[in-house]
């Protein structure tokens, strides 16, 4: 790593770098908030916070990790505040989602032969591949809305179960069912489109 060469402060005064960073943050926030304006506000606040103490950062990758950490906090705030506005109809109606577990498992709960998880080839290096991230986002996009939202609250924003239940106004068992389904789907999508293909 050569990030001591140019400080975080320098990076944030580079218009090209800043614009790139801003659009990455915007995409990340929009994905989770589902609202361009709310996302823009969160990104703006995170960047303002970052500019205040950018000087203390050794380099760009440290800066980026940190800016995203601030952004995650902003998103968590918005998600928590929004709890009261979650429409009831998004919380019921899991009937459509029930059937996709039947596609994976037999009636007795065994994996269907063609659905059995296979070993993943080199999962560690996937994060360094830009094509992998495109597939990851596509798989995320294909999750039903509420599954995606709850999954992102848990895995991106790292909220605890009770916080997600409060924010989304769902029970713990509902949360567990939703996360289970999201992970089954996402796992399968990543395997079919990335990890198994390379095997």
């Amino acid at each position: 790593m050569s990030e001591h060469v140019a400080g975080g402060a320098t990076a944030l005064t580079d218009p090209e770098y800043l614009e790139g960073l801003r659009s990455q943050m915007q995409r990340f926030a929009t994905l989770q908030l589902g609202d361009q304006d709310l996302a823009e506000d969160a990104v703006q606040e995170a960047l303002v916070g970052a500019l205040k103490s950018a000087r203390s950062f050794g380099g760009r990758s440290a800066l980026k990790t940190w800016v995203f950490a601030i952004l995650k906090n902003k998103i968590a705030d918005v998600l928590r505040q929004r709890s009261r506005y979650v429409e009831a109809d998004r919380l019921v109606g899991t009937t459509g989602e029930e059937s996709d577990l039947d596609e994976l498992f037999t009636r007795r709960g065994h994996w269907r032969p063609e659905e059995r998880p296979v070993p993943w080839v080199d999962p560690e290096s996937a994060v360094d591949d830009r094509e992998f991230w495109r597939i990851f986002e596509t798989c995320l996009d294909h999750l039903p809305g509420r599954q995606a939202q709850v999954f992102m609250m848990r895995e991106f924003i790292e909220l605890e179960s009770h916080e997600i239940c409060a924010a989304a106004e769902i029970s713990v068992s509902n949360l567990n069912v939703t996360l289970h389904r999201a992970r089954l789907r996402l796992r399968e999508c990543l395997e079919n489109n990335w990890f198994a293909e390379r095997g």
């Binding site: 960073l21 950490a69 360094d128 990851f136």
Partner: peptide
Amino acid sequence: AAGKRDAV
């Protein structure tokens, strides 16, 4: 979530 997607 740490912005790794765009680092690459």
